[in-house]
């Protein structure tokens, strides 16, 4: 593989894995939300908000993918030649968000399922449930941070 292909593999991993994490997480919350809504339709707004939370990992993945594509010239006007070692550097950069995005999306979904059970009984406690979910998301944010720092650190 040439440099550019290795870099694009990185972009694909970031978007794909982090997106999967979000998809699974949102899926789990969605099931819980559906269970609650079938009994108490007036909580739709609240559950929708909770269901949106595990979506951030996918967004971070997309963001990473986009940055890589822009850097290697797939998007945009400038053409860039990427060496093999630069390609590997882009691949490495994608890994933190790909891995942490996958797992944190899933676990954030599980925490939010519990939050939905919480608001079935005590809707006023939604804020606390969200804080718990954010604890999980922290690690996706850190992964994004690492990813972005590596990306900015690559010499072209």
């Amino acid at each position: 593989m040439e440099g550019i292909e290795i870099a694009l593999l990185g972009a694909a991993l970031a978007v794909g894995f982090a997106g999967s994490g979000s998809a699974i997480g949102i899926g789990i919350v969605g099931q819980s939300a559906a269970g609650l809504i079938s009994e108490d339709p007036d909580k739709f707004g609240q559950t929708l908000l909770l269901q949106a939370l595990p979506g951030t990992q996918g967004i971070y993945g997309l963001l990473t993918g986009f940055l890589i594509m822009q850097n290697v010239g797939v998007i945009g006007d400038e053409t860039v030649t990427i060496t093999t070692s630069q390609g590997y550097a882009f691949l490495m950069a994608s890994l933190p968000i790909a891995i942490a995005g996958l797992s944190s999306g899933i676990y954030q979904g599980r925490v939010l399922s519990s939050t939905i059970n919480l608001i079935a009984k005590r809707p006023e406690e939604m804020g606390k449930g969200i804080v718990y979910a954010v604890m999980v998301e922290t690690y996706a944010v850190f992964a994004l941070l690492a990813t972005v720092l590596i990306l900015f650190g690559i010499d072209l």
Binding site: I59, F66, I75, T138, V141, F142, L145, V148
Partner: peptide, 23 residues
């Protein structure tokens, strides 16, 4: 202290997502 790096990451994220939309 390291936890505050999220300020940077999130600030960057909102800008870059905006750039993705524009692109």
């Amino acid at each position: 202290v390291l936890s505050y790096s999220r300020l940077f990451a999130l600030g960057l994220a909102s800008i870059v997502i905006g750039m993705v939309i524009n692109a």
